[in-house]
Amino acid sequence: MADAPPMFEARDLSRHFDVSRPLLQRMVAREGRRTLRAVDGISFDIPKGRTLSLVGESGCGKSTVARLAVGLYTPTAGSVRFDGRDLGAARASADQRRRMQMIFQDPYASLNPRWRVKHIVAEPIRAFGLVTTKAQEEARVAELLTQVGLSPLDGDKFPHEFSGGQRQRISIARALSSNPEFLVCDEPTSALDVSVQAQILNLMKELQQRLGLTFLFISHNLAVVRQVSDRIGVMYLGRLAELAPAESLFRRPRHPYTRALMEAIPDLDMTGRERIPVGGEVPSPITPPSGCAFHPRCPLANDRCKRERPEMKPAGDAMVACHAVEEGRDDAMPMPAIVRDAA
């Protein structure tokens, strides 16, 4: 599989936002411009038919990566390549856009409340001129609605007549309507109830197998990510902390942040263990800490971590950005309980 050319590649991808206050206020307060480094130099690739997930806490930049991937944002630096062709240099061509689609987090905001479902689903079909007659369009919409587990009759209704889970199905039908090969899913189940989440995750896996889709999956939920991913990238303050094959990440998390994140997850099995919270708060991405951004919260931090920013280096079958792992000091931090229990 490693030989297959990647469907999607991000190379040193960065996106900075200017969050300065208006000029007049800046002059009064005598402060300079302020830049938010939402995504700061990350690289990964996704082979065709596979799923790569990005996990991290809010503000880590994972949703920005999703928007960079589909061209809603243009990169500040670095590039995005889709099927071997650069997307960043010029605007994506209609053909490239047709082949990539996005599923959003909030099923209540992602469907235009004034449109009937059949028009929502048909929008990409019309935008790309995929069918020529009205009858063809109707047939295709009916087929898509059936494919996501809805009735073709639902096409005449408005979004408010559906529950959150059904709306997310409509979103998926819309995303599939242009026959895409690559789907970017930004927290597609985090606004849903857990029983509905299972329905949607099953549906997405099923569609991936049937249609050979490639997924970039964004989530904050490690358990969800484990179910869907082939590879997982853990993000912290705009950078990748660790990038590893899914099973290997859960068998042996290397980066101290990954371990802390796993340790903080509530324990459903009620083994009686206490969660060990990660100390401190996520720092502001406008004024990130020096050196390794995680060092103020890291039990393994030393002087080098405060000074020098770690680069992604291979460690086993993973890539890890951590001085402690590179120097072999990481054994000082115990593996999370769930890893120990599994072993």
């Binding site: 989440q197 299972a198 995750l201 969800v224 796993m262 459903l268 769930i338």
Partner: peptide, 9 residues
């Protein structure tokens, strides 16, 4: 229906 953290199904 809660996705398990300790294994992939």
């Amino acid at each position: 229906s809660i996705p398990p953290l300790d294994r992939r199904v």
